[in-house]
Design a protein around this nucleic acid. Structure first.
Lengths: 163, 163
DNA sequence: TTATTTGTTCAATTGTAATTGAATGTTCTG
DNA sequence: CAGAACATTCAATTACAATTGAACAAATAA
């Protein structure tokens, strides 16, 4: 397997890594996806760690992460015992599963969280921890936030159809 | 000023803090915004650091951060020399400026980055660093990514109108 | 079976960014 | 003006998460 990357791939890998880093994900994971995204043939862990100058441990955890996100799949290469990895090239699908696995559950939990907060607010009002005016104010703000939540919830399916 | 928070605000503050943390922003900044969002009256730096058990330094940097994001505004409280802060309650506006200041520039830069990558790809092809098949493969993948970029670019104004 | 190749797990290190206390600068007050 | 009240800046600390090397486990080959 090659030991160095052509400059276009090098730069792509770097960009992907920084994007992930900005999103709070491990840079190395982004680099791995970037590398695979521009690889015509599946790569082994050794290829990955070699080309990206990562430890095999990082390559292993990174690929497993990507497998969990369904951003990558394992493919069998005849005549080679090692696992090989290939990027899922369809970014629409990636977005879709990302939404399903990441955004939606969070959004749903945020709705129940809002309900909790509202209940809490009423309890505070009854226990006297909150004045009438403060209670009204908080209630209005929470209500506004809830309508925003609703809009996001309604927008996302539209966005999904858009892709 | 009060020394402790009613439970509803306590929980809201915690939630806001964790949300920011997840987004890669300082937790304390989120907590400050959460606190102000549910405060009927503007708070001073001392109020903030006291109620959230933060150093005044953190309160200062956090509020300046929020000012830069236009998530908070300074208000003058008669008879008090200190700066006081109030949350911008309109989350729509917050989203809008967040999009303008954060997303849009990034999206634009990503477009020029794609052009760079494409140019790079052609250069690699010419220099022989890339086989014909590899070149075709990479070109297709970059093209696919570009169309996704276009869709995002087109979707965002729609989403903006939606709010 | 034993030796070798491959992949994962885990403790330790490293790097990065948030947080703080102390120092500094600035504005008000008496 | 001197002194106090505030806010900011900065160096140092702390907390956290990515990364690694080494130990371990599993599978294959000889």
């Amino acid at each position: 397997m090659a030991e160095s990357l052509p400059s276009c791939r090098r730069e792509f890998v770097e960009t992907a890594g920084r994007l992930c880093q900005r999103l709070g994900l491990p840079r190395s994971t982004g680099q791995i996806y970037g590398l695979l995204y521009l690889s015509a043939r599946p790569l082994s862990l050794d290829d990955i760690s070699g080309l990206l100058s990562l430890s095999k441990a990082s390559a292993s955890t990174g690929t497993r992460q990507l497998l969990a996100w369904q951003a990558v799949k394992q493919v069998w290469v005849p005549g080679d015992r090692r696992d090989h990895f290939e990027a899922i090239g369809d970014l629409r699908e990636l977005l879709r599963t990302g939404y399903e696995k990441f955004f939606r559950p969070r959004l749903e939990r945020s709705v129940t969280k809002m309900e909790q907060l509202h209940a809490n607010l009423e309890a505070d009002r009854k226990s006297g921890a909150l004045s009438k005016e403060d209670h009204a104010f908080c209630k209005a703000r929470l209500a506004h936030m809830a309508t925003m939540q609703n809009r996001v919830t309604k927008l996302l399916p539209i966005a999904e159809k858009f892709f």
